[in-house]
Design a protein around this nucleic acid. Structure first.
Lengths: 228, 228
DNA sequence: GTCGACAATTAGCCCGGCCTAATAACTGGA
DNA sequence: TCCAGTTATTAGGCCGGGCTAATTGTCGAC
């Protein structure tokens, strides 16, 4: 345990590692060194070295040649950073006129610099939102995160009216394009037709008929309309 | 010149050095290694080393054993950081409910992380203020800074109505105390009496008579009321 | 069961930015 | 004019966090 419990501030690097490890290890599965390296755009040996340090600090569980998982301390730290990131994104859009395609980069830098106090003030100013502009759930300050179940557009049955919950594209160009079609969280859509073999999908959104490719459609996650 | 013109991003450390060197070298005078070290709470050899690197990068003019001065590139960079810092302070107070004693620390970290874009959005949201909550002038994006002439309360003639321009205390406790007396930028004050030998000063502010010590009074800079 | 492909780790290096200890340069008084 | 004290710089080291090259594990195919 030792260092794990003591609250030495984490470095920027460490925070980035924890974030991607969280993203790469859904439900207790382990993240591989090379996946982490790929996500962070670092060499595998660099990641290997950091993994060793972080497991010595009690933030990771490492089974050599098998992968890593966050410990509960690591998970808590990761969720704190994710909370910062998503609140920042929400604030930038709501209060400073950013568009949803531009916030990620800015939040990526700020998340390492803001104090908890500032984050809570931003959250409060926004009425404690529970999702960021892309529909990603915002963890609470206590480290609880809502599990949003949502289905990619590619798997929604035709004719069933659904609502967009999350858009998982990161690339600004894709986000701008999707927004131009009205495909943003909260928008009601109905899949009209789906071509086989990863073909295009025809849908109705905001009264318009639209066709989008498979690659984009998998980023658009939907669920039944919340308020029935 | 070389590196000076190219816009490689400056590190956090470098930005801090430039800021304090700017603060320590008023009107072309040189800043000494030990003064810089003291302000940054670093050892003198560390500063010596950094000075060498920064002058090689064209940000400083260094005369060994004599001191350093910012080059025009260095000055431009310093003013950019100071702009960020002061706009951040202003924004935090105006939009997120911070008090003027709490903003410095937060801005100190954020100034190294925010983008120019974000800073300009904040400035615009505030109507492009020309001073931060302590009355310090905010440099323009082009690197011009207003020279505010102001006189410490300790030198204001008795009986002359003046207005507070700047409060140069950094310590949160002092700032809170001054605010509790109404001694903030913009407040009209009149010195009623001054005791000799750095003694206390009696003044009228907001219709109240107050007595403050010499040490605090030197931090309160005043000028003739702007709008006559 | 062995072999090859590929993933992961170790070895050894670099750089930024800090440190202490040792040395060198100014400066003001005797 | 020289010496002491102060101030600055050089020497040499450490740590975090990257890198490449070399080595070692793992595992599926034969």
């Amino acid at each position: 345990m030792s260092a794990a419990t003591s609250h030495e501030p984490l470095t920027r690097s460490v925070e980035d590692y924890l974030k991607v490890i969280y993203a790469l290890s859904p439900e207790g599965r382990a993240a591989s060194t090379s996946d982490i390296a790929h996500r962070l755009e670092l060499s595998a040996p660099s990641v290997s070295g950091m993994i060793k340090r972080l497991s010595e600090q009690g933030l990771l569980e490492h089974i050599p040649y098998k992968g890593v998982q966050l410990t509960s301390d690591g998970r808590r730290a990761a969720l704190r950073i994710i909370r910062r990131h998503r609140i920042l994104e929400a604030y930038l859009v709501a209060r400073l006129g950013y568009t949803w395609d531009a916030v990620h980069e800015e939040a990526e830098k700020l998340e390492h610099a803001v104090s908890d106090d500032l984050i809570e003030r931003m959250a409060e100013a926004l009425g404690n939102p529970h999702a960021d502009p892309h529909g990603e759930p915002i963890p609470t300050a206590e480290g609880w995160i809502e599990e949003v179940e949502a289905t990619p557009l590619t798997e929604i049955p035709t004719g069933e009216p659904v609502e967009i919950r999350r858009v998982t594209a990161g690339d600004p160009d894709r986000l701008r394009y999707l927004a131009s079609l009205g495909l943003k969280p909260g928008a009601p859509v109905t899949v009209l037709e789906r071509q086989p073999f990863s073909g295009p999908i025809t849908l109705r959104v905001l009264g318009q008929e639209r066709v989008i490719g498979h690659e984009l459609a998998v980023c658009v996650l939907c669920g039944r309309s919340r308020r029935a």
